[in-house]
Design a protein around this nucleic acid. Structure first.
Lengths: 241, 241
DNA sequence: TGAATAGTGTCTTTTAGACATTATACC
DNA sequence: GGTATAATGTCTAAAAGACACTATTCA
């Protein structure tokens, strides 16, 4: 960057700047399916369509802090695993003005997901239909509880699709799956999370072997309660070393 | 986003906005090592340290277009494989003002890399010392031709480190390696690219098997020239279907 | 005891690493 | 023919899928 160019950008009046926002993909599991939290738009543009919760980035606020604030203000959630996803900058993504948006992925365990739904913030659950469709992933559609499609506003369908792809990509080598589970969980629950994210069934013995060999699971000694059959052992996630 | 919040952001005078920039990690191979192109800073801040080429994002310019423009203006390269990396938004990353920067990875085959070095744009090569250090990756240091460290400006060391990690992560399932090679290349060259990115030696027969089984390689029928020994077959990258 | 799921043993298939051998070009 | 690297064959080890079998809890 040359000095003259820098000065041009240094003077806030010299060049108009894009507005900067964050959008959150809030993901959880409902009935064993990957589900997002969306807000119905009441005004133009895209009135009646469904949007990701978002907000502008303050001048003295980091991107992560803006995402945490939106999580708090728009979903009533104090904390969750947040991860930056991608930055969307198409010129016409918002018809009102130029807005560049940094998308974040927020992974919610079941209680946080339910709390956000009940928070009175106007969020609704949308099950994601994510056909396997190879590594590239197919188009993602969001469905209401009754299976009706929820049409998405802005470029938010692209953001959702990318969120699912990212989740799939990180499943094998990161701890994303545990962020969707309660602190104590069974191997079956863990397998179901993997299957829901991948959109494909998994082999039980092989899955158990892989997970236990990884060294991330610590038996709690306790067992599932309230089952009508043999209760499974409960494990805890232990970050390795 | 509520309407009042939107309006607050809608009026450009209502709230100050962060400046938005792009920074490019220009990567190529020199003498079989992963190498970046950096510009020495002449002014404060960080005078004398080395920085990634970058520039502000225009109000009517997409992020990708801004990255392409910087590639053209700051490196004299008409086109290269560009890929968005991550967006950096720490409050104090530039002491002059609040700048949020979208980092891009640009992969240059050898001729483009050499052209950028000779373009008179003031770019210098910095070999990246990237110890394997497990999946998480260690600290990345940039070295001049004589092996002296090039101290980096701003948060650009973080950006470089992330670029290398991203490259490693995508090596197995994407075509990034081919972006660093000429159109026709030998399997040995391809293996050397992989080894340079991973920072670890690779098993030859296994590597050949994997690459050929992948179905991305098409024999050209031609062979290497100018060797003092048996010339290797030349292949071409063919994106599968 | 029956039902339902947890958990494991084992066989097969696939994939990767190690190492040696053969092939081919130039000198 | 010597030399250096290309290319391949083959053995072994590790990992994953398939399938069946045993174990354990509740009703």
């Amino acid at each position: 960057m040359t000095e003259s160019e820098f000065l041009a950008g240094y003077d806030p009046a010299a060049f108009e700047r894009p507005a900067l926002a964050v959008d959150l993909v809030l993901l959880g599991l409902r009935a064993g399916r990957l589900t997002a939290l969306l807000a119905e738009r009441r005004q133009h543009p895209y009135a009646g369509r469904w949007a990701l919760p978002g907000g502008f980035v303050g001048i003295a606020e980091t991107l992560d802090a803006a995402a945490e604030r939106v999580l708090r203000e728009k979903a009533g959630i104090a904390r969750a695993r947040l991860e930056q996803l991608y930055t969307f900058g198409a010129l016409d993504r918002d018809p009102r003005m130029r807005i560049v948006s940094v998308a974040y992925l927020a992974l919610l365990p079941e209680p946080a997901f339910a709390a956000a739904l009940d928070s009175g913030k106007g969020l609704a659950a949308a099950t994601l239909a994510v056909p396997w469709a190879g590594e590239a992933g197919g188009p993602v559609s969001a469905l209401s509880e009754r299976g009706e499609p929820r049409a998405l506003a802005f470029d938010h369908a692209d953001i959702l699709a990318l969120a699912v792809l990212r989740l799939r990509g990180k499943l094998d080598y990161s701890d994303v799956a545990f962020a969707l589970l309660p602190e104590h969980f069974t191997l079956r629950q863990l397998q179901d999370v993997h299957a829901a994210i991948l959109g494909t069934p998994l082999n039980k013995p092989a899955f158990r072997r892989r997970m236990l060999d990884r060294g991330w699971l610590e038996p709690t000694g306790a067992r599932e309660a309230g089952t009508a059959f043999r209760p499974a052992e409960l494990y805890r996630f232990r970050p390795s070393r």
